[in-house]
């Protein structure tokens, strides 16, 4: 395998005098993914101002999205994006753990199971059949789970996607050999520090900031909407208390309150219990019915291709 040969040696890491601090070998870093959108590893490439500096401090030995150079470990630091969601992931994560001295899970998928963990409340076979016409080719597990459910994890970077600031903090901490300073507080704290007017108290918008781990910079309230919990529950998050308030303040049914938690970190406790206690997810309840699945399809066979070539007249901007 791996016929993709290393390109001419000029590209090989470590040979250009960039080894940090008196010739100590640079830590070998890998970036790999399981089930995910690639957004978290893209955050590494989004460290535009630091990217090249970073490569002077770390030897990036595996980062398929960015480099054809491949290794299969061992790694001093391995960043893993994505949730465990196929039988192959189960096998790979065990191997990766063995290869990694420090394993860092990055993002909501890796740390909580991700948005795809909503299927954990549903009938997986029904989901599979609804999306893919020949589901027997689709290999996936009934549940999408965080990596920490399978192997030990050394550090977590939360978020959908992760925060570049927290990523840099973790990387510099690893270089220096200290513990990263990642605050364990509510989004509200950052929101208030930034002087953002609370969207919940002032506008009645449901916001999960109080039970959600900080790190994003309170972007949702800053953008005039409620936090949707993509950094996951913070330590001792009183999700049940917040759910009771949402219901008691009279504007939301139990089902609607449950949906608030059924987002990108739904499967992380205590959001998971809040959703279950409030009756599970709407989508899961619905997918239980076979009629719905049969109603799926691609809209095929409604009009011929030729019919589509008819020039439409009087089109305005939107074709309306």
């Amino acid at each position: 395998m791996a016929a993709m040969a290393q390109k001419a040696d000029r590209g090989r890491p470590g040979e250009h005098g960039h080894a940090a601090r008196g010739g100590t070998p640079r830590p070998r870093v890998g970036v790999v993914k399981l089930a995910s959108c690639d957004g978290c590893q893209l955050t590494i490439l989004d460290l535009e101002d630091h990217l090249l500096e970073l490569s002077e401090h770390f030897e990036i030995v595996d980062f398929p999205e960015a480099s054809s150079a491949r290794s299969n470990g061992p790694y001093d630091v391995l960043f893993v994006e994505g949730s465990v969601s196929t039988p192959d992931h189960l096998r790979r994560i065990g191997e990766l753990r063995k290869q990694a001295r420090v394993l860092v899970t990055i993002g909501a998928c890796a740390t909580s199971g991700g948005i795809q963990a909503l299927r954990n409340w549903a009938d997986h076979d029904a989901y599979r059949a609804a999306v893919y016409p020949t589901p027997e080719y689709v290999e996936s597990l009934a549940r999408s789970t965080p990596i920490s459910e399978h192997v030990s994890v050394d550090f977590e970077l939360r978020g959908c996607p992760i925060s570049p600031e927290q990523l840099i903090e973790l990387l510099t901490a690893l270089v220096t050999g200290r513990r990263p300073q990642l605050r364990d507080e509510a989004v509200c704290m950052e929101c208030k520090r930034r002087g953002i007017v609370c969207v919940m108290s002032a506008q009645g918008i449901a916001c999960l900031g109080q039970v959600t781990q900080t790190g994003c910079g309170a972007i949702c309230p800053r953008m005039g909407r409620g936090c949707y919990g993509c950094f996951g529950p913070r330590e001792q998050a009183n999700a049940a208390g917040l759910a009771r308030w949402f219901q008691a303040s009279g504007e939301r049914s139990a089902e609607e309150v449950g949906q608030l938690f059924a987002g990108f970190t739904a499967y992380a406790e205590p959001f998971r219990s809040a959703i279950t206690d409030l009756g599970g997810t709407r989508g899961a309840r619905r997918s239980g019915g076979g009629g719905f699945i049969a109603a799926g399809g691609t809209g095929a066979g409604r009009a011929s291709y030729l019919a589509g070539t008819r020039r439409m007249e009087g089109i305005d901007d939107d074709g309306r």
């Binding site: 969601s85 999306v131 996936s140 997810t281 619905r286 719905f292």
Partner: peptide, 22 residues
């Protein structure tokens, strides 16, 4: 061989603004 994530199912029963996020 991307792991399936069933997005077309995840958006079922969600509101339009939730769909935009998802």
């Amino acid at each position: 061989f991307e792991a399936p994530r069933y997005f077309e199912q995840l958006v079922v029963e969600r509101t339009p603004d939730e769909v935009i996020d998802i």
